[in-house]
Design a protein around this nucleic acid. Structure first.
Lengths: 139, 139
DNA sequence: ATTTAAGCTTACCTTTTTGTGTGTACTTAC
DNA sequence: GTAAGTACACACAAAAAGGTAAGCTTAAAT
């Protein structure tokens, strides 16, 4: 009987450790927010794109095809806030802004790229599995 | 001048290669769907949870705290469809269903866990960055 | 003289995602 | 006799994400 049923105590790990790293399995874990930014629809693509080096806003917009200006700006702000992206603006006309990865950002971006690459590389296998599923479940 | 402006031709990579792996940067790339399933709010947590071995529906519901039954069922179906999760149901009363990772699922799950672990482990650094951002931008 | 471009912001609207509550069929525990 | 657990499905509602179009500033290109 707990006051807040959301707080899960995992007895295997000491409390201090859980506070320091957060525990993604427990609700309201602050790490979930960061995870959301990183794994968001456009977050993934932007991070991977920036692994290729510095990009201007419009470069990113063209590279990550399908993203709207609004979403690009918003996602970049999240990633900047988390310390993954560095934004350098030069106050000239027309505006000139450069986006790049911070050292911290490089690390996450590599993890994200790993995942993305795996999916791209194994896409044929996945499609096979999907076909089999459809056959079996007569969809 | 193209009929479908969404189709981006990246001249660095041969066409056959792009068709086989898909290109996440181009809109409507089918891999984006799979990526969405895997990086979805609950997809990440479910995959990581299943790395710990077979789970029943309710076990997962308790472990991945915050997930609703509806979302759990839906996400599991997506992951099953993609060939990442194996569902074995025993027609007894009350119902008994076991979920586990396929070999393919283990591979993605590891990539996802890598990412999740990195975020959990570096969360203090991220928080520091967030604090600095707030100071500088007087939020 | 008008268009184009840069990098956004804002308001408004649509689509997608997620949550809630209910029902089901049956058994075991209280 | 009633409640709880099991693994969902379904209908409805709320919330979040995303798209669209306009505006801003100033200079260069047409």
């Amino acid at each position: 009987m707990q006051k807040d049923p959301d707080i899960q105590l995992e007895l295997g790990t000491p409390l201090s450790e859980r506070m320091r790293r957060g525990d993604l399995f427990s609700e309201h874990c602050p790490s979930r927010e960061v995870l959301k930014h990183v794994t968001s629809r456009w977050g993934v693509l932007i991070l991977v794109a920036l692994l290729g080096g510095m990009h201007r806003f419009s470069d990113l917009r063209r590279k990550v095809s399908g993203v709207s200006e609004k979403m690009l700006a918003q996602t970049l702000q999240c990633l900047e806030y988390d310390g993954f992206v560095l934004r350098q603006s030069y106050p000239v006309v027309p505006p000139h802004v450069e986006y790049s990865l911070t050292p911290l950002g490089m690390e996450v971006a590599k993890k994200v790229e790993d995942l993305a690459d795996w999916i791209e590389g194994n896409f044929p296998k996945i499609m096979d599995a999907q076909e089999k599923f459809k056959e079996i479940n007569e969809v």
